[in-house]
């Protein structure tokens, strides 16, 4: 038996909206630690890792580990039937081929119950090595979204070069209408951590990435006020959105190398 109760349906809506265009179906792995998911986009260029720790739910019950194969787009549509502040309860029996979703209004005067069919999904589980990153940049998530959008839509760039030095982080593109760059400097004040740009750097690093993936990752912006980018020479970029202290959505993106 699996049961997980989440105070706000809104969080699950945001998570699904953040990942459903990149990975349309995935296995939710349920264990006593919580709910996790790993999946690659169809081109195997990026990987999504989700963790919702059990302490983010009240209650959370998992008698034995379960793998729930879910069509994320269908689940996102179903979650739209919940109001943002509805209490979400997910339940599944062991060996069940359905996941039950229950939405309860805060005043407890409306209860919606849905049964979602599960699927058998063959998915490869990848080992993500522990990495010491050359540079970790934390910035407002809205700023990151804006930069990706402007460099994509404004310049028509396909590849973005991200160069991180002690002075700042520079995003550059060359596109159909010309070229451009946006540089963010480290902010002096850390009074408002969510509004700050903070660079922790062991050594300067420059990498090239496909911009359209970064734009896709930015759909997770509503999940967190800040985002971190972790970069090391010739390894995938990590774009992490933390959900308070109860979990994260991480996107890994393989770099492009100059031929």
């Amino acid at each position: 038996m699996f049961e997980a109760r989440l105070a706000q349906s809104n969080l699950m809506k945001k998570i699904l909206d953040a990942i459903k265009d990149l990975i349309t179906e995935a296995n939710l792995e349920i264990s006593s630690g919580g709910i996790s998911l790993q999946g690659m986009d169809s081109s195997h260029v990026s990987l999504v890792a989700l963790l919702m720790r059990s302490d983010g739910f009240s209650p959370f019950r998992c008698d034995r580990n379960l793998t729930l194969g879910v069509n994320l787009q269908a689940m996102a549509k179903l979650m739209k039937c919940a109001s943002n502040d509805d209490i979400l309860t997910m339940t599944a029996e062991d060996n069940s081929d359905t996941l039950n979703l229950q939405f309860e209004s805060p005043a407890q005067d409306k209860l919606s119950e849905f049964e979602m069919k599960l699927m058998d999904i063959d998915s490869e589980h990848l080992g993500i090595p522990e990495t010491e990153y050359d540079a970790v940049i934390r910035m407002p998530s809205s700023e990151f979204q804006r930069i990706c959008r402007d460099l994509g839509a404004g310049i028509g760039g396909e590849s973005v070069t991200i160069a991180c030095t002690k002075e700042g982080v520079k995003f550059s593109v060359t596109g159909s209408v010309g070229s451009g760059s946006i540089t963010l400097k480290q902010t002096g004040s850390v009074d408002k951590p969510a509004e700050s740009v903070v660079i922790n750097m062991a050594q300067p690093v420059t990498l090239i990435f496909a911009l359209r993936y970064l734009n896709s990752f930015a759909k997770a912006t509503p999940l967190s006020e800040s985002v971190s980018l972790s970069m090391s020479r010739e390894v995938p970029l990590v774009v992490e959105y933390k959900m308070n202290d109860t979990g994260y959505v991480r996107f890994y993106l393989a770099p492009k190398l100059e031929d």
């Binding site: 990848l126 090595p129 393989a254 190398l257």
Partner: peptide, 14 residues
């Protein structure tokens, strides 16, 4: 010219 690498180039199958 750039070459797009794959996640499989970095993360091993488990």
């Amino acid at each position: 010219q750039t070459v797009q690498l794959s996640i499989h180039d970095y993360f091993p199958l488990q």
